[in-house]
């Protein structure tokens, strides 16, 4: 189901993500280490999908393969009808990393603008200013990363990602480095910034709460090598708010996910 290829500046149709038979292993002194095995996955355009699994299970590797930062040994990745490398240079993909990846010598504003520069889009000062405002950082434009708190840096990193109006947003535990309170706030405040139903979001996390708060669909992965053990739809209404955490529906979803995680992550079951 390919998306029509419309110019990205107008309202483009959402891009589906389609993974077929993805496998990846790394060679090391102890022999080959299989990290990802036989992943088939379809992500509907415009939805948010969380890849959830135990630490070190290979979910980040899977995300890097989708971003085109890593080549899969087998299988194919399609974003709409094209592989990642054809999308990247047009700014159609943006990745938020565990580390904020802000360049310390650039001001906040210059860091946000960097994404557009790298894909050679025209500078859009108003769009940048607007994004900074929307992630709640206005007034800090001229500061350098060293002067910002961890939470502020993550917001800035998200703003940089959004500056190119990406059609696919890949989040690799973007809030892993900040404290729990800040993390929860970011989880609630940031999705509306990108959640316009046009951007396809793929999120890697090991926090069940985060997955439930952010995602429409949760893909549960086993311990290494990562295989899909379960797929759970989250039916909570949007926009998600902090007070939803107290609702029985939320607790019920969390419980379902935790059970799935416990069953799938328990060990290496057969393929």
């Amino acid at each position: 189901m390919g998306a029509p290829d419309i110019a990205t500046t107008t309202m483009p149709a959402p891009l589906d993500i389609e993974l077929t038979g993805i496998s990846k292993s790394f060679s090391s002194s102890a022999g080959d280490l299989s990290v990802v095995r036989d992943i088939d996955l379809q992500v509907r355009g415009g939805s948010t999908t969380a890849l959830l699994g135990p630490s070190g299970c290979g979910k980040s590797t899977l995300l890097r393969i989708v971003a085109g930062l890593e080549e899969a040994d087998h299988g194919s990745v399609l974003l709409g009808d094209k592989p990642p490398h054809a999308r990247r240079s047009k700014g159609e993909i943006a990745v938020a990393f565990q580390d904020d990846a802000l360049l310390p010598w650039r001001t906040l504003k210059a860091n946000v603008a960097l994404g557009r520069q790298l894909v050679r889009m025209p500078a859009a000062p108003r769009r940048v200013a607007d994004l900074i405002d929307r992630v709640g950082l206005s007034g800090f434009e001229a500061r350098r990363p060293a002067e910002l708190s961890g939470g502020m840096r993550q917001r800035a990193a998200i703003a940089r990602c959004l500056a190119t109006d990406p059609r696919v947003l890949l989040l690799d535990e973007p809030f892993g480095a900040v404290d729990a309170l800040t993390r929860r706030r970011l989880n609630v405040e940031l999705p509306p910034v990108w959640g316009d139903g046009v951007t396809t979001v793929l999120l890697v996390t090991h926090s069940v709460t985060e997955a439930v708060l952010l995602a429409d669909k949760i893909v549960v992965l086993s311990a290494r090598p990562a295989r899909i053990t379960d797929v759970i739809n989250v039916t909570l209404p949007r926009p998600r708010r902090e007070d939803m955490l107290q609702t029985p529906a939320f607790a019920e979803t969390v419980r379902t996910v935790e059970e799935a995680l416990g069953a799938g992550g328990g060990g290496s079951s057969s393929a």
């Binding site: 085109g68 990247r88 240079s89 047009k90 700014g91 943006a94 990846a101 190119t164």
Partner: peptide, 11 residues
Amino acid sequence: VWVDMVQSYGR
């Protein structure tokens, strides 16, 4: 991660 970031924009 800085290198990855640049690479993620296809550069």
